[in-house]
Each structure stands twice: as structure tokens, then as C-alpha cells.
């Protein structure tokens, strides 16, 4: 169980002074500004749960993850991960967690990843059998049999990321903190990493907390999301519930067998036409209130030469944008 209670982290940042003698003055009297990276964050995560941790740039997501991993000491509030207080950095605690930072690597640059794996075995004091089995399972799941024998510097970004994941999970952590694990990967590799993470969670029951700018990661992995903005929680709840409350619509994408005029679609879409375009159309997307989907579809199908159609939830990015732009108390539990 992860329990975060009124967590806050304040950083002191040197201010750049203006003026002719600013540089000289700053030597003797440097001015600092304080920034509340995390202002007041509270949530709990049950064992085995997969939670997406979202928010705009600078919202405090990574700072919170780093406090959960014991890398940063909170300015106020408390964190408990299992029976541990992360900031104590107890070795038993470090054996139970893994933090994967998508833009940082722990693999030794000039050696093949398998050398880092062997080192990891010694660092975490893994017995031979546990290590062999864990490595075999991870290598199979991630398909890195060849990559682990080539120097890290010669690996593609995707191969490196998969080897990083393998390295981070060798010791069988119970708590997995992933910060942008798919950053820079191509679509196929993103999918491979997502399915691996999901399988790992299902097989081991590890608790997963994920931050990502790719909503596809969150949609694929996390039934529950916590959204923070300005260092505070603005939503904590079910992902689908968030969509229902913030943007309770469905998107209908229609493809036509022959081009239709914009005006003919516009009348039927009743003002919900997305991405309006001029001239003749071969494809349109319409946003329709959930309760009107059936009725609207019947009208569209009857009046237009529809070849193909897709009904889906609105893009999650848009839902999140609506949430962040909405005024007032947006907490999922109280909305």
C-alpha cells in the first residue's frame, strides 16, 4: 500500500538579476525564489493497482515519484510505501522498489547490458537461482536475447529502454514507478513496453505508478488516474468516469463511399462536427452526447453514403485538457 498524505516539496531557485552590475552583485548577495513543485498531494494506492499519474509539464509528477522512491526529501507531509518511509532510504525498502526514468540510464555505456545485470545481481544480493529465473523470464518477455550481448552504446533507443526495464526489474520489485517509460520509442516498441509492463503487473502483483505524456500508455495500462496540476491533485478516480464527467460524448468517425458536401454533414451533425473543413468530404468526425448516439447514427446512416464507421470515447488528451481548463474543485471524489 502506498499512502501519500499532504505531501509538499519546495525548491529554492537562484533568481537571475537584471541590471548593469547584476553579475557582480550576485556574487555577494544572490537572490532566491521558492517554487512549490508539489504543494499538497494526497492519495493512496492499493497493492497490485495500476495508477496513471498525469498532469501538464511542471505539475509535480516526477517530483512526487522521486519522493516516493526516496530520492527527494519532502518539505512537508508524509509518504509511506509499504512499511517504509522512503526518505530513510532503508536498504530493505530499496529492494522493494524500482524507479525507471525514461530519460536516464543505469546501464554501463561501454559494456553489454548483461554486465550491468550481473552487477545488479550482486548489488541486490540475488541468489543464483532467483537471478537466473528472473533474467530468463524478463529476457523472453522483452525479447532482448541479442541486445543484452552488445555494448549499450550500440543499441537502439528501444533496445536500450527494454534493457533498462529488465535491469530495473531483475530484483523483483513490489512497487514499480515508471516515469515516461516510452519516451522516444517508435509505435511498435511503445506497444511492446506497455504489454510487458501489464504482464509484469498481472504476473507478480506489483503495484504500478506511471507518468507519461503519451495518453495511449495510460489508456492501455491504468484503470485509475491521479491528475495533478500546480502541485495539487485535481482528479483521483476511475479513468472512464473522468471521461464521462468531463467530456460525456462519443466520437463518431464516418468514411464515405463517395464525397459529400460539408453542408449535408453539418445539418445532420447538429453543430458537433469536429475539425471543420471546406469543400467536399470523404471522412468526418462528429462528437455526439452519449445519450444521442443511437438516434444520431440512424440519421447519418440513412442520409449519407457511409462506407465505414467507428464509435469511440473522445481522445483522452482532450478530456485531460478539459479537466485542466475547468474552474473550481475538480477532484474526482467530489465532482
Amino acid at each position: 500500500m502506498i499512502v501519500v498524505d499532504h505531501l509538499a516539496k519546495r525548491f529554492s531557485v537562484a533568481k537571475k538579476s537584471e541590471g548593469r552590475f547584476a553579475l557582480f552583485r550576485s556574487i555577494f548577495a544572490r537572490e532566491y525564489a521558492t517554487i512549490d513543485a508539489v504543494a499538497d498531494v494526497s492519495f493512496t494506492v492499493a497493492p497490485g493497482e495500476r495508477v496513471g499519474f498525469l498532469g501538464p509539464n511542471g505539475a509535480g509528477k516526477t517530483t512526487t515519484l522521486k519522493m516516493l522512491a526516496g530520492l527527494l526529501v519532502p518539505t512537508a507531509g508524509t509518504v509511506r510505501v509499504g512499511e517504509f518511509r522512503p526518505e530513510d532510504r532503508d536498504h530493505a525498502f530499496l529492494r522493494e522498489i524500482a524507479l525507471v526514468l525514461g530519460q536516464k540510464q543505469q546501464l554501463i555505456w561501454d559494456l553489454p547490458p548483461e554486465e550491468t545485470f550481473v552487477l545488479q545481481k550482486a548489488l541486490f544480493d540475488l541468489d543464483d537461482r532467483f537471478y537466473r529465473e528472473a533474467l530468463e523470464r524478463l529476457v523472453t518477455l522483452l525479447a532482448i536475447g541479442d541486445a543484452m550481448k552488445r555494448p549499450t552504446r550500440q543499441l537502439s533507443l528501444g533496445e536500450r529502454m527494454k534493457c533498462e526495464l529488465c535491469c530495473a526489474l531483475l530484483h523483483g520489485p513490489k512497487y514499480l514507478f515508471l516515469d515516461e517509460p516510452t519516451v522516444g520509442l517508435d509505435v511498435a516498441m511503445e506497444e511492446a513496453v506497455r504489454s510487458f509492463v501489464k504482464q509484469y503487473n498481472e504476473e507478480t502483483g506489483a503495484t504500478l505508478l506511471l507518468t507519461s505524456h503519451y495518453m495511449a500508455d495510460v489508456e492501455a495500462l491504468c484503470p485509475r488516474i491521479v491528475v495533478i496540476d500546480g502541485g495539487r491533485v485535481v482528479w483521483d478516480g476511475d479513468r472512464e468516469e473522468l471521461v464521462r464527467r468531463v467530456r460525456p460524448v462519443k466520437t463518431i468517425t464516418l468514411r464515405f463511399s463517395q464525397a459529400v458536401t460539408r453542408s449535408s454533414v453539418e445539418d445532420l451533425a447538429a453543430g458537433h462536427l469536429c475539425e471543420p473543413a471546406d469543400g467536399e468530404l470523404r471522412e468526418v468526425t462528429i462528437e455526439v452526447p452519449e445519450l444521442e448516439v443511437k438516434e444520431r447514427l440512424q440519421l447519418l446512416l440513412a442520409a449519407l453514403p457511409v462506407k465505414d464507421l467507428v464509435v469511440a470515447d473522445p481522445p483522452f488528451e482532450r478530456v485531460l485538457q478539459d479537466l485542466l481548463n475547468a474552474p473550481g474543485d475538480r477532484n474526482g471524489k467530489e465532482l
Binding site: G70, L71, R89, H91, L94, R95, K104, Q105, L123
Partner: peptide, 8 residues
């Protein structure tokens, strides 16, 4: 940060 995540 990555060194600090190791139990050594």
C-alpha cells in the same frame, strides 16, 4: 539518482 536506488 540511479545510484541512490541501489541498496548499497
Amino acid at each position: 539518482a540511479l545510484r541512490l536506488l541501489r541498496p548499497v
